[in-house]
Design a protein around this nucleic acid. Structure first.
Length: 485
RNA sequence: GGUGGGUUGGCCGAGAGGCGAGGCAACGGACUGCAAAUCCGUGUACACGGGUUCAAAUCCCGUACCCACCUCCA
């Protein structure tokens, strides 16, 4: 069984064949750190996090690079509006992004390069392009450098477009361009309107990088001239990825073997950036559901499917995920918990200690079929729930191990300490304290029940419930859990 | 205008020629003092119109509606 991935460039599902056996190099376009991350931003990160975990689980040594764009027009515009330096805005938003990603258990990449730290690499690449006749400094003295689209016959190959069908670029004064479709590799510093801190020295005078060049330069630096997979949101297909590929290949680099693009999360039928609304920012969403539930909501849909976001659907997903957690909790209550189920030491994938169900593996190998994979998790949970009635058995242990193994691949293991709300030492002490108090009440209730004094038994249960704690009677005795938030 | 994608049951969301993915909700049953949880069961869903085929949600043709990208949006 081999991994198959949908390649945007060829518009078909293809076998994944790495350039180097046993290794996978992945580059994902991260965010432009210009505002707080919302649900849509985070989807891309989760989707590619699942890709990474699956590759690792299948035994690949994964080098995973996800960049941040920390200088661009919007950052400059917004920072000016907010009356603070652009680098402060970018840094603040970068930290917000880190926090948001941590809250949904997205692993930190192998490395996270930023554009501003890689100007020399970009200058070098631009110089190469000029030398090869694929780029030229603007003739209007603006200090801009453009990629010469007409000089690269393959231009448009990624998105299946002809140059003549495209609308001309508007991000620079067209007077300096040979063709209106040429795009900026380097942007000359505009003294009158841009801060001095937003300019770096170059052979063409002070300026800053064009958008696309950073990814070409950084992918080349950290993954090599050829690498396996390049990912990002669908909107980046054109122009960003088309331009990246054109630049890199025109410079003589083979670049990415596979292109993967995640679809949108929309609200009211439109992309989130259009519908705005603070309620979709990650901290707001996390007031309603836990991070793990938000992640489950994202993972339960295929990465190439549009998802129409709604809080109702989010609540449903959260309810569905608790069913999985309930199974794990009940198994733990009879002695089959996470500690008894050793899997990989790093929790970053790698082969599990128990073979995952064939159907799960097949689903994941089929272009990361997470919806089908989640269905297998539910099937296993249902079987496990049946087994649970028989007490601790080898079959039950296997089911628990498989569920943990599958959840880990999806980044959804509730016992993973990476979850910020998984509880540190203080939480555990608090839980122990509450346990003592609740156990006392449960003993009283047990006495009442033994005496068939149902009124008193229910009164005690209601009293506990008033504190936000649910009591369930199980074959092995009453179990208390914190109620839903 | 060019390019890419979508329309599935009360809801969410898979699938891509034949056997009803899965979840949420609902209803019935089992279990329970009652609940809860769990298990079992219950649905003639594939935008519309044609066609191909023994067989179409799935392939072909056409129509409608929706969305995205076309130079700094995940």
């Amino acid at each position: 069984m081999t991994l198959r991935l949908y390649d945007t460039a060829t518009r078909e599902v293809r076998d994944f064949v790495p350039l180097e056996e046993g290794k996978a190099g992945v580059y994902v376009c991260g965010l432009t750190v210009q505002s707080e991350p919302h649900v849509g931003h985070v989807r891309s990160a989760v989707n590619f996090d699942v890709l990474r975990r699956w590759l690792a689980h299948q035994g690949y040594a994964v080098t995973f690079i996800r960049n941040v764009t920390d200088i661009d027009d919007k950052i400059l515009t917004k920072s000016e509006e907010q009356g603070r330096p652009w680098f402060n805005l970018a840094y603040d938003m970068h930290r917000e992004l880190d926090k948001a990603l941590a809250s949904i258990n997205v692993l930190p990449p192998t490395y996270e390069p930023g554009a501003t730290g890689h100007v020399p690499e970009m200058v070098e690449l631009i110089t190469t392009l000029i030398g090869r006749g694929h780029a030229y400094p603007a003739e209007d003295g603006s200090g801009d450098v453009y990629f010469d689209v007409r000089s690269w016959p393959a231009y448009g190959e990624l998105t299946n477009q002809g140059v003549d069908d495209m609308a001309p670029a508007e991000d620079a004064d067209p007077r300096g361009k040979r063709d209106p479709r040429d795009f900026a590799l380097w942007k000359g510093w505009k003294k009158e309107s841009e801060p001095e801190t937003a300019a770096w020295p170059s052979p063409w005078g002070p300026g800053r990088p064009g958008w696309h060049i950073e990814c070409s330069a950084m992918a080349g630096k950290y993954l090599g001239k050829a690498f396996d997979i390049h990912g990002g949101g669908v909107d980046l297909r054109f122009p960003h990825h088309e331009n990246e590929q054109a630049q890199s290949r025109a410079a003589g680099y083979p670049f990415a073997s596979y292109w993967m693009h995640n679809a949108w999360i929309t609200t009211a039928g439109e992309k989130m950036s259009k519908s705005l609304g603070n309620s979709l920012l990650i901290p707001e969403v996390l007031k309603r559901v836990r991070g793990i539930e938000l992640r489950f909501y994202i993972v339960a849909a295929h990465y190439r499917s549009h998802v129409e976001f709604s809080f109702e659907a989010l609540d449903e997903a959260a309810a569905g995920f608790r069913r999985i957690e309930n199974f794990l909790d009940r198994a733990a209550a009879i002695g089959i918990g996470r500690d008894e189920v050793p899997t990989t030491p790093s929790r970053v994938g790698g082969p599990a200690d128990v073979p995952l169900p064939d159907a799960f593996v097949a689903a994941m190998d089929d272009d990361l079929g997470t919806p089908a994979a989640v269905a297998v998790v539910y099937d296993t949970v249902r079987e496990g729930n049946k087994l649970l009635a028989g007490g601790p058995t080898a079959e039950l242990t296997t089911a628990v191990r498989q569920v943990f193994g599958m959840l880990e691949v999806l980044g959804l293991d509730p016992t993973d300490p990476a979850w910020p709300d998984a509880g540190g030492g203080a939480d555990i002490r608090l839980t122990d304290a509450v346990d003592v108090l609740v156990q006392g009440l449960l003993e009283e209730r047990a006495e009442a029940r033994a005496a068939k004094d149902w009124a008193r038994a229910d009164r005690i249960r209601d009293q506990i419930k008033a504190a936000g704690i649910e009591v369930e009677d199980t074959p092995s005795g009453p179990v208390w859990t914190l109620g839903e938030k």
